[in-house]
Design a protein around this nucleic acid. Sequence first.
DNA 1: TATGAATGAGCCTTCATTCAT
DNA 2: TATGAATGAAGGCTCATTCAT
Lengths: 209, 209, 209, 209
Amino acid sequence: MGKLENNKQQKLTSLLNTAFNLFTTQGVAKTSIAEISQKAGIAKGTFYLYFKDKYDIRNRLISHESSKLFKNAVASLEDYCKKNDKEIDFEGKIIFIINHIIDELNENQTLLTFISKNLSWGIFKEALTTKVASDDINFKDVYYEMINDEDISLEEPEIMLFLIVELVSSTCYSSILYKEPADINKIKPYLFKTVRAIIKEHTLPQDSI
Amino acid sequence: MGKLENNKQQKLTSLLNTAFNLFTTQGVAKTSIAEISQKAGIAKGTFYLYFKDKYDIRNRLISHESSKLFKNAVASLEDYCKKNDKEIDFEGKIIFIINHIIDELNENQTLLTFISKNLSWGIFKEALTTKVASDDINFKDVYYEMINDEDISLEEPEIMLFLIVELVSSTCYSSILYKEPADINKIKPYLFKTVRAIIKEHTLPQDSI
Amino acid sequence: MGKLENNKQQKLTSLLNTAFNLFTTQGVAKTSIAEISQKAGIAKGTFYLYFKDKYDIRNRLISHESSKLFKNAVASLEDYCKKNDKEIDFEGKIIFIINHIIDELNENQTLLTFISKNLSWGIFKEALTTKVASDDINFKDVYYEMINDEDISLEEPEIMLFLIVELVSSTCYSSILYKEPADINKIKPYLFKTVRAIIKEHTLPQDSI
Amino acid sequence: MGKLENNKQQKLTSLLNTAFNLFTTQGVAKTSIAEISQKAGIAKGTFYLYFKDKYDIRNRLISHESSKLFKNAVASLEDYCKKNDKEIDFEGKIIFIINHIIDELNENQTLLTFISKNLSWGIFKEALTTKVASDDINFKDVYYEMINDEDISLEEPEIMLFLIVELVSSTCYSSILYKEPADINKIKPYLFKTVRAIIKEHTLPQDSI
DNA sequence: TATGAATGAGCCTTCATTCAT
DNA sequence: TATGAATGAAGGCTCATTCAT
């Protein structure tokens, strides 16, 4: 890899990190490109060589961070299975992943603020299906793998995922950040029950022999 | 009521109407106070005698419009019951109301854009519990009335309402506006099944005598 | 006149004067609104309360300065007639005015640069027919008056004026500023001969009795 | 000629063509060097190996295009003489050339806009006297040839040419592009009469034997 | 109460030019 | 010769808010 190539990668990383810090601490609206550039140690004009505008970098960050949440959750799940030498069924896996993500967001509320305030299903779907960074995972693949592994059939797997994601994400936002209408820990059981219900309704009766 | 008082009311109404039109047609961010004031026929400085800032007027509008959605749905429900001389159970009423609101939003997508893009549970809760205009209804009261009428007991009625509202509103947004992951009409049955499941899980076994 | 009104007028004048100085010394392109505002002692944003953009103020200045040139020339002509108690015919008046304007431009070459580099017939025509400042004259009226006074008839007075103005202005530019293809004083006799020829060709034979 | 030399020529041509297209379609000010380079298929830095800056390439283009106008007009004139086996006198030739140029500009108004908006006598004179491309003509030589051929003597041939060129070019601009003060076809007769008058005044009485 | 002129910080964006490769 | 990443000054413009009237 040439020196130049290397240098470019460094600048990109620097920009992404700086922007993420600023976005999470002061919000997207109150962060200017001038500030991002300056703190990243590059010229303002250089910013535009890497990103179209502020919303471009924001979207890429959301995709990347969302992807990380899923990646961590999936990794933790695999870990858990290995360690305990346990098999968990599909429903259990979904709940495990949701729980892991909720806990992570609960401990990193600035991240939650950033993601939620700027999320749309469009960006999110992109996060689920494309890799921004080289080590990102494609959760959709993981999701379908999970479905196949269990040998269950779902009526509309994508709609089901959509309902769950929307329910969980919008629920988390006010529950974690404002404890409204109650603390996330109080909400959790009801939330999980609902998720289980959603899964049940989408599950087709297994072909019996 | 003095002439003066009347004049004040007129200005307030003019401001609210103008702002609503501008917000829904061009978005909140691209609407300036100068534009609102000018089109409302008052001076820029006068705006500040009625509202703290742009977000103040925006929030009041969201509350008012949300309230209207519920009011219309409830009115339509009562109408339906009278006309058909039918009794509908609690679950049916909730579904009826949701359905009515979804249909209204589907036909008024600018309203949906405005409300969703600027919604937070905080504002929304306010909309449910307080009256902005004199003819607004307090949906929370209606909700508890509905519960009492049926003589059912719910474990955590507020959390239940919260889950339903969050699920429905975030689902509608991408489904109606972007048909993602599918058209609202395809989503509806799954959504209603989920709502029913949520209600079921919150319903406590009836005291039998 | 209120204090406010007075204040506004002062600011306008200050802006016009400052802009004119900057435009003539460093050119329009190299003059920024920031600089105009700052040197005029007002805030940058205030500039936009008085002018749409840089070209708006530039056009108004050109109109005003052009008007002044004509005004001075006409005044000088009247003066000359009075003093010498002489009658000058139409052709002589036109030549007098042109000569006066050329001399003024020759002595104020920065003005010539400014006007010529930014002139278009559109702006110029406006300068001839509308008053920017209260003391501006409307040269077109003066022109037609001159025609009537002499009792001569011209075939196409407007086209004639157009030809003369275009010829003189474009000729002056390189002749005065770059002495190309010769000094204005060497060009003058040829120029005047040409102007006379233009007038002659447009003059219709007088009705004889 | 080496391959390298050839390559250089190609790049130069590509740059000139691209710049001309961009200048005429969107104007000089709104065309950036980046855009020219990119569309010409070379790197931005390479531009500077061929031209000093944007105005350098612009001037060369104006010279070249002006030269082409004269070249075409002269060629057409010669053609006309041959075909009709006619002799045209000096005055007639000048009028023919002017007429031809006007018609060409009338049919190619983007070219007129480009040339006029960026013309100065300096650049123009260069166009008359120097060849930019190898097939350009030197109109000044042609002009003096025409004078000699006819055996007429002019008092100040250069000033005469200057007056004519300035008159025609500035007249065309607003007349063709804005039909101000009238359409070019209405202006033409007056313009030609004026040109004839200019020539007459510069013509010295022929030496009689 | 009502006005609207004035503010001036702040933002985004463009672009000619340089220079290490 | 050729590249194109980097620069950073510069510029135009918007807008919420204040305050004297």
